[in-house]
């Protein structure tokens, strides 16, 4: 049984600068999202439990191949990538179609793992969409995954309760950021990452074409800071502020 981990290359969020409220992505390097590393770690732990390979899938521009080295270093066995500069900025419905096509090319898929939401957009739409396209059962917000033969037991962590669910494999799982602590790759693993097997496809290799964008971005600006930014010098002053605003002595 193989484990598929879907990963997304995102701009290093710490390095994005704002110019006139416009985000500037010039020169900002790409990185793996933190939660994608949790998804990968979940996959690696399942592999240790029940064997098979961990295969990562990703769609994006040519840079993705470099970015995914980190995941291959951390233990993924193979990568299936769609590399196409025209596919650098897909939205959820398009990404889902492309990933589903990639996953169909992989034999003996057991669990398909996603982060619960990407580090930059955090919409969490791609995983469930892939599950629907492939007609697979899904459990989101997982805090635990356990494979027993042909089924898996997954704990879905909701706001006020945990649900323990069982489903037939293959299935789609999206994981929470606190499901595990991602391992640190060794020097040898880092150096060998570039040599691991990769299946690389161009956008035109996908059997079905991508539809147009289902969502377009009209504007994207840093929020206007309407805060008063009054300097407060002492706790006494702070208390008079709280009193004036009606929070103390109500």
């Amino acid at each position: 049984m193989n484990i598929v981990v879907a990963m997304k290359q995102i701009p290093d969020l710490q390095q994005i600068r704002m110019r006139n409220r416009q985000p500037s992505l010039d020169g900002v390097p790409y990185a793996l999202g933190l939660i994608d590393k949790n998804a990968l770690e979940a996959g690696l732990q399942l592999k240790e439990q029940s064997g098979g390979k961990v295969i990562l899938v990703s769609v994006g521009n040519e840079e993705v191949e470099e970015t995914m080295k980190e995941a291959l270093a951390a233990g993924a066995d193979e990568a299936y990538l769609v590399l196409d500069d025209d596919l650098a900025d897909l939205e959820s419905s398009q990404t889902a179609v492309a990933l589903a096509e990639l996953i169909k090319k992989i034999d003996d898929v057991g669990v398909v793992i996603f982060g619960e939401g990407s580090g930059d957009n955090y919409s969490g739409q791609v995983g469930p969409r892939v599950a629907e396209i492939l007609g697979l059962p899904q459990v989101g917000c997982a805090s635990h995954i356990e494979v027993n033969g042909a089924t898996a037991r997954v704990t879905r962590s909701l706001e006020n309760a945990d649900e323990i669910l069982e489903a037939e494999l293959p299935m789609v799982v999206t994981v929470l950021g606190d499901i595990n602590e991602p391992r640190i790759p060794s020097v040898t693993q880092i150096l060998k990452a570039g040599k691991k097997p990769k299946q690389i496809f161009a956008g035109s290799d996908l059997e079905i074409g991508l539809a147009g964008r289902a969502v377009s971005t009209i504007s994207n600006l840093a929020p206007e800071n309407a805060r008063k930014r009054v300097a407060v010098g002492s706790v006494d002053e702070l208390i008079s502020v709280l009193r004036a605003e009606g929070f103390v002595g109500r």
Binding site: G117, G124, Q125, R129, Q138, G140, E159
Partner: peptide
């Protein structure tokens, strides 16, 4: 919420809809 976000993607795919959470 967690349940709703998870549902949104699957339902949108079924309906052929664009989705946002």
């Amino acid at each position: 919420d967690r349940r709703g976000k998870e549902l949104a993607g699957r339902l949108a795919q079924k309906l052929g809809a664009g989705s946002l959470a």
